[in-house]
């Protein structure tokens, strides 16, 4: 009896612990699972993919989606040089000032600036997008159940509307979006951008690349974190082993 209760407790506890894992599978629909280079214990961001992903973001997503937590200077983490970062920042315009006459003026972006929002405010964004609000993408990978897999699945999940499914005017069918109706039309199309490194810009490739870029945007300290974690845990293992030896020694003169 006691054993039964104990093992039952353990079983339920296990299912509770894996609860958030179950949540991560995305509410019913199985997401496409990709083996991302950065998700393992020692995983690092695929720099080339992330750089291509930046290009996809700039040429495809940035028209509607902001990236307002990400400063240009941090792009150096993705392998861009200081000059390349300055050049990227210069492509954007910011309001500067006031000057000595008290007037505001336009100035070119600097590395310390963050990616600007495409719309002045939420109302303007909704007015331009048929009432829908394109969310900022800075944290999108961490802010959706399913994380990278969800984003990738969503971008590659556009399909013809199945028969019998009533699609509201102006919406698109997406197999992975909750409710399957999404206001965003299929964002990427075959050869939608021209990659400078010669990679063929298939929908699948672009979806993967921009996902890697946005995963970095959401968690830029991932590599430092894992690197430090390894050293800390190794240290703790040694330390704990020593504590155990000392404990045994001290307790050995008892009893």
């Amino acid at each position: 009896m006691l054993k039964l209760i104990k093992s039952l407790s353990a079983a339920v506890l296990l299912s509770v612990v894996t609860l958030s894992g179950a949540q991560a599978s995305g509410g019913g629909v199985d997401l496409k699972s990709v083996n991302w280079q950065h998700t393992g214990l020692f995983g690092t961001y695929d720099r080339a993919a992330a750089q291509r992903g930046l290009q996809v973001y700039q040429e495809v997503c940035a028209g509607c989606h902001g990236l307002n937590q990400v400063a240009f200077r941090t792009l150096q983490d993705l392998g861009f040089t200081e000059d390349e970062v300055k050049a990227i920042a210069k492509e954007y315009e910011f309001e500067g000032g006031p000057n000595d006459d008290g007037d505001m003026f336009d100035r070119a972006g600097k590395p310390f600036d963050k990616f600007p929002n495409p719309f002045a405010n939420e109302k303007a964004a909704r007015a331009s997008n048929g009432g829908a609000f394109p969310p900022d993408l800075s944290l999108i990978v961490k802010a959706r159940v399913g994380f990278e897999d969800y984003l990738y699945s969503l971008m590659t999940g556009y399909a013809d509307t199945p028969e019998g499914f009533e699609l509201t005017e102006g919406m698109s069918y997406n197999a992975y979006f909750p409710g399957h109706q999404i206001a965003m039309p299929a964002p990427i199309s075959e050869e939608g951008v021209e990659y400078s490194d010669g990679t063929k810009a298939t929908v699948d490739q672009m979806a993967k690349d921009v996902t890697v870029f946005l995963a970095w945007a959401a968690e830029p300290k991932l590599e430092q974190r894992k690197h430090m974690g390894l050293r800390v845990i190794l240290f703790l293992l040694v330390m704990t082993g020593l504590f155990f030896a000392v404990k045994k020694k001290i307790w050995s003169d008892l009893h």
Partner: peptide
């Protein structure tokens, strides 16, 4: 041997 163990543990603990 015991002293060495204590010193090693204390030393590594302090560094950590």
């Amino acid at each position: 041997r015991r002293d060495f163990l204590y010193i090693a543990t204390g030393g590594i603990g302090a560094v950590g």
